[in-house]
Amino acid sequence: MPHDHHDHDHFHHDGMSPSGHPYRADNDEPLSYWQCMEIAVRELLIEKGHVTPAEIAAQIEAMDARSPANGAAVVARAWTDPAFKARLLADASAASAEMGFDIGGLRLIAVENTGDVHNVIVCTLCSCYPRNLLGLPPDWYKTRAYRARTVKEPRKVLAEFGLELPETTQVRVHDSTADMRYIVLPARPAGTEGMDETALAALVTRDSMIGTGLPKTP
């Protein structure tokens, strides 16, 4: 498998970051060739006036501010506001922007899970992902295993995520091959009647918007 990052032991939760992932060996590690290239490229671009340190800092900040919580808010709104849901399914970029999310030029399509249909998103050719809404993709989304197998045996892949779908549910795989990005609008879980938008958003996981999971139940 590709080294999409250095070894981590998923059974150790001591020493994990607040997001529950391993802290990255970073500034204290020996300088690698590629890190050295990053420094050189960035400094040359700054020296030659093609970019400023402030622009780089602002871009990192903007990307850090994008997270699955943005998508969860969109989903929760769609669960509670039928008119918004209709707008989301018609034009997910406009609906996300309407909620105040800075999604840049993202062209987003929302695909709806129902009692009979389950959607799952993949990019077989590279790593296309609705990053301007949900933030950067998880490492597994970029692996050979996920990219290669999701279009051929989606049910087996979903089972590896702990999601077993009945044969009566149709699986729709979406391969992000070009200019669109996709988000799954998961079905609202049973037993959530009366919950408000904020409480509902807390049930919406990142994986439920990729299609490799379902929302949490209250």
Binding site: R24, E38, I60, D64, Y146
Partner: peptide, 18 residues
């Protein structure tokens, strides 16, 4: 599929930003 993920290092965020 191994559900690996990590927090991005500063140098990785800089590459993304560039």
């Amino acid at each position: 599929v191994t559900p690996a993920e990590h927090d991005f290092a500063l140098w990785e965020k800089r590459v993304d930003a560039l």
